[in-house]
Simulated scan of single mutants.
Amino acid sequence: MARFHPLPVAAVDRITDDSVALTFAVPAELREDFRHTAGQHLTLRRTIDGADMRRTYSICSPAPGPGGEAPRTLRVGVRLVDGGVFSTHALKELAVGDEVEVMTPAGRFTLEPSPGLYAAVVGGSGITPVLSIAATLLAHRPDARFCLIRSDRTSASTMFLEEVADLKDRYPQRFQLVTVLSREEQQAGLPSGRLDRERLTRLLPAMLPVDQVAGWFLCGPMGLVEGAERALRGLGVSRALIHQEIFHVDAGTPTVSVIPAPAHSTVTARLDGRGGTWPVQDGESLLDTVLRNRPDAPYACKGGVCGTCRAFLVSGEVRMDRNFALEPEETEAGYVLACQSHPSTEQVELDFDR
């Protein structure tokens, strides 16, 4: 089960006017707990103005190789979000030596280093997990190549510019970089403008052999990710080869399904080897019901994006308001997001330990 541990901030590096990279020192006794796969994320927790605030940020540092030493430090990228309490705190108040509660790594937007050609389409802070994926792959697999297509507003707003340039210098034959700026003309390269479905449909076949890519990684705002997926599907790419992680989902996004709720429901939940059964109050999510009785239940964003509250639906039926974290094969296998799930039967049973 994922757990929080206090980790000291070892470095706060300003990487653009509105973003920082936070480095956490991992003590020796916790290093195996924080061993991660490239592409995973960390949930950070702090009490800010008396409130428990949690946010999920992707790890940008490379992952250790098989059998390699567990990481002594972990680095995440944080971009300022309008009205974002945690991101504002991170940019303006966090300092070296401060302690932050950090949950052990989670997430399935990952790549185990394997031979072949891989590609990513990212926007803005979506570069963060893909930087870890590309750096880990190229370091551990000399028979692998990576093509990164990234979209940013301007060069000044581009996160991890130096780190990506370093990959290009170290692996000139195996790392391909394509940069598109939406609000600034470049002296060389592609014209400015958004990377939408139509543009990607033309661009991707011109940049690489689409049918030879072993895995696609799409990360960033919802519009970019959805447009890239539709472009790839239109080019004949199998859904199984497309991996997505969405940042910045519109709060008004419609629900996934609508199933009438029963008048009275209970949820039985197994968590960290212990179970319990509790009544679901009118209108609350299954996660909120569990949290009233088990405050240690895992969650972060409560927006259907991070996947921290993923649970296996043992019995009963639920409706999910939104789902931007689980892959189709996960939902088909019976997994749900507890933060977005409401009971559709009188009895529902969840297992957070699977």
Rank of each mutant, 00 (worst) to 15 (best):
L326G: 04
E330Y: 07
P221T: 12
T23R: 00
P27G: 01
A165K: 10
S285W: 06
Q340G: 07
V81P: 02
G50L: 02
L232S: 07
P142S: 08
R3S: 00
E349K: 04
R322V: 02
L291V: 08
R354T: 10
E162M: 06
G83P: 05
V305Y: 11
F352S: 05
G304A: 08
P205Q: 13
P279H: 13
S157D: 05
L22P: 02
L337F: 15
I242T: 13
I127P: 05
P113K: 10
S341N: 06
D288C: 05
M222H: 14
S192D: 06
V314N: 07
W216G: 09
P6M: 06
E245T: 03
S125H: 04
L22R: 01
V305R: 08
K168R: 14
G116M: 13
S257R: 14
A134Q: 01
P115W: 12
R292H: 03
H36T: 06
S61D: 07
Q173N: 12
G126F: 03
L350W: 15
L271E: 02
T104K: 14
H89S: 04
T277P: 10
S238A: 04
R194W: 11
C309V: 05
L117V: 12
V210Y: 14
P172G: 12
P328S: 02
M222T: 12
S238C: 02
F86G: 00
T47D: 07
A300N: 02
H36N: 12
P115I: 09
F217E: 00
M103L: 07
A228V: 04
E162R: 13
T73S: 05
H264D: 14
R354K: 12
A251V: 03
G220P: 07
G215S: 10
S344P: 06
R108E: 15
I48Q: 00
E29I: 03
E198V: 06
V102K: 02
R54E: 00
L286W: 15
V290G: 15
V225Q: 15
P298I: 01
T158R: 15
T88E: 11
P71G: 09
V9W: 00
E185G: 02
D288I: 02
F86K: 00
V96D: 03
T56P: 06
E32F: 10
D272C: 07
P298Q: 08
P62A: 04
T73I: 03
